[in-house]
Structures are given as C-alpha cells and as structure tokens.
Simulated assay, not measured.
Amino acid sequence: MRIPLKAGLAAAALLGATTVLAQPGLAQNTLTVGGYGGSFETLMKEHIIPPFEQANDVTVQFVPGNSTENLARLQAQRDNQEIDVVILDDGPMYQAVALGFCDTLTDIPSLPDIYDIARMGTDKAIGVGFVATGFAYNAEMFEKEGWDPPSSWMDLADPKFEQLTSVPPISNTYGLHTLVMMARLHGGGENDIEPGFEAMVEKVAPNVLVFEPSSGKMSELFQAQEIALSIWGSGRVKALADTGFPAEFAYPKEGAIALMVAACPVVDSDVPAAAQAFVDYLLQPEVQVRLAETNGFGPTNKNTVLPEELQTLPYGPDKISQLVAVDWNAINPKREEWTQRWAREVER
C-alpha cells in the first residue's frame, strides 16, 4: 500500500508546515536513509526530512557518508540491510543496481515528469539532481586577456592555457569524465579508452598545473589566480561564484557530462512503501528547488521552477539537452585498472 504524499507539496511543507493525515499502518515505523554528509545532511535533517515525517507518521534516520562509504555499507549488510533508501553518485549507483541492492521503482507517480536522461536506463534507480561536468573559468581573467569563454573539451589542449589549467585526477568523477570525453573525441570511448589516455598524456597534461582532487584547493587555485580554467561541476562553480569570485560555468559544445545524484529503494526493506514514497518525495518540485538552493543540484523534474539566480544550474530543456551520459556499466569494471594507468602515465 502506497503512502500518499500530498500532490504538489506547498512550499510551506518544506518548512515543516504540512498537516496530512497519516496512513494508520505507518505509525512507529522507521525509515533509514543513507546519503551525503556536510551541507546535504544539514538540508535533509532540517528541511527535507521533517515534513515527510509529519505527513507520513514515520521516523526517518539519516546515515551520512560519501557514495563509496554508503555503497560499502550496502555490501557489508547484504543479508540484513539497515538502509531503506540510498542516495549515491550515479557511478556507484549503477554498481548498486548491478549488485542487486536496489528494488524496483513500483510506486513513483512523479516518473512521467522526469527527464529521460535521469531515468538512467533502469527501473531500479532515479536521478534526483543534476550536476554538469564542464568548464569552470575565471571570467575576469578571460576578459582581461581577451579570451573567448571555453567552448570545446579540446580547449584543454590550447597552448595559451599552459600551466593555467587544473583537471581533477581520475579518482574524482570529473577527471574520469575528462578521460572519457578525450577518448570519444579521438575515435574511442568507454570501450576503447586508449585514445583518451593518448590525448591526456600528449595534449592535456602539458597544460595542467596540478591534478587537484580537493574542491577547497581548487577554489584556492582560482582565487590566487594560479589557474584560469578547470574541469569542474556546475554546483562547485555556483558555490565559488556565491563567494563573490568571478567564476562562471561553460557547457562544451560536444556536451557537458551529466553527473547525477541518484536514489533507490533498497531491497528487503521492512518499510518498502515508505521507501518508495521517500524516493518520490525527493522528486517533488518544491524539494528539487531546495536541493538546487543549498547544494547546486539541477532539477530532474521538468515541472520544477527555479528562481532566476539559480538558472545557471543544469535547468530546463535547452541545458538538459546539452548533457551527455557516460556508460557506467562499461566503466565500473575497468576503473581500478584505469586509475593505476593514470598514475603511471598522466600524472607522472
């Protein structure tokens, strides 16, 4: 039996003002949600979870951790799952699906309103937020130098950016995306990565000042004007721009890569109806606005309306059409091998 959520939750619901009669069978139930820590955990505990609990007479426990940690929890608890809903980056989520941890999405009324790319080619998980992997650049420095905004992934190889760029390492999804796009642009792809490594070693690496994994250090590099250009996520660029720094995000003409935040109901949950309802709740437009405001996630629900100041995020049909997906089912089995090779050849 599905837990009814009030259609089109009012914005006030996110502030804890919802008063919906609960299903009698849900009293005293506990739903455990695994997701990111930091600002995401704060948002969930202060604004997202309370109205859901009130509307559905269910207690929600939040387990913080990055995607690797929460995927490891699912593996460790395979025969006795404690997590009912898990929120992961799309790469680890495809692993969770392949390993049989995600239940089928059976009661998600919002599904018809979700962009196709966020459906992830599966009925086991769904994207609840978009981050675009593309260019971060110092708009003030570009204007001063008379440079046009970056427009192609191959701008990473432009000699004028020698020692003025940063690319995260392959252990970071942004670096992995860069490798895949270099492979695609040179005749290869996820199933033929050789051209990608050749392009990284010969064309991109000479321009890279540092392969920086830390978002905090990346921000410092920009603020110290040690770099003018990097591959980064749209949400990270928004956070840097919110500090007053002239950071802007650019979509490469070949496409920015969709890095999705995804959710799935976990198999063998003892509150399966609540798990399905919570996933649907994360797709509600009002919740999607909150995710955009606080974490820079572009909405996957087409009916979400963002205020003008947030429309630099992946938002609306035009920008979503500029997003491309990578084949995580091809990448995941090879990622460890690629990581070792990257250390030997790209960052040597």
Rank of each mutant, 00 (worst) to 15 (best):
E140N: 13
A72Q: 13
K253Y: 00
N329I: 00
T300M: 08
N80G: 15
N295E: 15
G100M: 11
T339I: 10
L209T: 06
R348E: 14
K253T: 06
M93G: 03
Q77H: 08
S166A: 15
G134T: 08
A247S: 15
L88S: 04
M218A: 11
L313W: 09
P159G: 08
A98R: 07
V20D: 14
L5H: 07
P314E: 10
E309C: 01
P299W: 10
F249L: 06
F297L: 15
Y251E: 03
K217W: 01
K334P: 01
E190R: 11
A273R: 00
E293L: 10
E220K: 13
G91E: 09
E286H: 06
K334Q: 15
P50S: 12
L313T: 08
L71M: 07
L259P: 00
S39V: 10
G244H: 01
L99P: 02
R341M: 13
T243H: 05
N301T: 12
G127L: 09
Q54D: 07
G134K: 05
S39I: 07
E220F: 02
V20L: 14
P285T: 11
Q340M: 12
N29L: 09
K6C: 11
E46Q: 15
P299M: 12
G244N: 03
A250Q: 05
T30V: 15
T173H: 03
P272G: 09
V261W: 00
P252W: 03
A241G: 04
S234F: 06
S234W: 01
S234V: 09
R78T: 11
P272H: 05
E254L: 02
D318P: 04
I83K: 02
T339G: 12
P307S: 09
D123W: 07
V60M: 05
M181K: 14
V58K: 03
M120F: 06
E286S: 13
S214C: 07
A55I: 07
